[in-house]
Simulated assay, not measured.
Amino acid sequence: MKHKAKIFHFVGYEFDVNARKIFFKYRIEFYNQHSLNFTETIIFPNHPKKLKEESIQKILESLLIVLGISYYKLYCPPRVTMPFRLSREQADFWNTVYRKGLGEFLYRNKLDPKRLAKFSYSNIKIYPDRIKTQDRALLGIGGGKDSIVAAELLKDFDIVSFLVETQKQDLISDSVIDKIGRPSLKIRRVLDLKIFEKHDGAYNGHIPISAIFAFLGLLTAAIYEYKYVIVANEHSSNFGNLQYKGEIINHQWSKSVEFESLFQEYTRKFITPDIVYFSLLRQFYEIRIARM
């Protein structure tokens, strides 16, 4: 009998400051089998200075939602539960991130976008927090030439290379960091190993990984007092590949200017106005970057 998922629970998170680890917990509840529980771990390289968890609570709540997409997509349950409340505008943002960020996943698995759970909202007001920062930037590092070009354009500014290593060391990105020659901050993202097991009836496919990196960059900036999170997403990421069920499917949606604008607005309105995320290469096509 195929497993039928009932509810996806965003259970919560735990921040162990001394161990430099944050644990994000999820549970899939089924009609016809025992629940599946998952824990994802984020590990930081250095102890944060004088950090109060309440100062980054809104970022941690956002990370709970965005990291959860890796586990939600296994069965796409029709309902989700949260340990905190969202405003209507926040719920709209997350409904968009899940629908458009999972666009290619839905297309390849022949799933209707309407089957995705909707984030519920309450009639509440959410206000941003002030976070202490310094006039310096994190530069997100990928494995290609875009990061090198961005670093060269920023050679006169105070930047640190920022890398998220998922599950194992990223040797290609390490070589880019070495070539750039700036200090680096490496965050480790450890997925729950159960996600790699075979689950009867589970789906597989693309997730909006750059959205995950954006929120991890925001958290890292808040913890280590950086004012800017800079990425090197270029112009061609703005365009979709095909249309499916009334949606434009864009493999790179979480690198697009649409996501960037939504993320900037969400951060400013609901998290903090003190950290700014943007792409330095947005106006350039890939061929132009190759010539720079």
Rank of each mutant, 00 (worst) to 15 (best):
P113K: 12
Y244Q: 08
G240L: 02
T39S: 12
L171S: 14
K58G: 06
L218S: 06
Y13Q: 04
V231R: 03
G144Q: 12
P113R: 01
M1C: 07
Q167C: 10
G101D: 04
L64P: 01
Y107Q: 05
S237F: 15
T96Y: 15
G217Y: 01
L216D: 00
N204Y: 12
S236Q: 14
L63T: 10
K25P: 00
A137D: 02
H206M: 13
W253F: 15
I131Q: 01
Y224R: 04
P208S: 08
K118Q: 15
I69Q: 15
I159Y: 06
D146L: 07
V97W: 00
A222F: 10
K194G: 14
A202C: 13
R88N: 13
E104Q: 14
W253P: 00
T272K: 09
F10H: 06
Y121H: 15
Y107N: 05
L191T: 10
A117Y: 02
Y226L: 09
I172H: 11
F105C: 04
I141H: 01
Y203A: 10
I22K: 03
K6P: 06
I172V: 13
Y266L: 05
F23Q: 14
Y26K: 09
K186W: 01
L153T: 09
L218K: 02
K132A: 13
K269H: 10
H47N: 06
A232G: 09
I59T: 12
L191M: 14
G140L: 07
V97M: 11
F239Y: 15
L138G: 01
F239M: 04
S173M: 10
E258N: 10
Q252H: 12
P48I: 12
K2F: 14
K49V: 14
E260P: 02
Y285R: 12
Q90L: 08
I131E: 00
Q134L: 11
P45F: 07
C76G: 02
E104I: 06
D170V: 04
T41E: 14
D178F: 07
L51Y: 05
K58P: 07
F10Y: 15
R99N: 05
N37A: 09
S256V: 04
F84M: 12
D274L: 05
T81M: 03
Y228I: 10
A232F: 02
L36Y: 15
S87G: 13
T166M: 05
L219Q: 03
H3L: 15
G181I: 06
Y226K: 02
P45C: 12
D274H: 10
L171N: 10
P183G: 05
R291Q: 14
L193N: 12
V97G: 03
I230A: 02
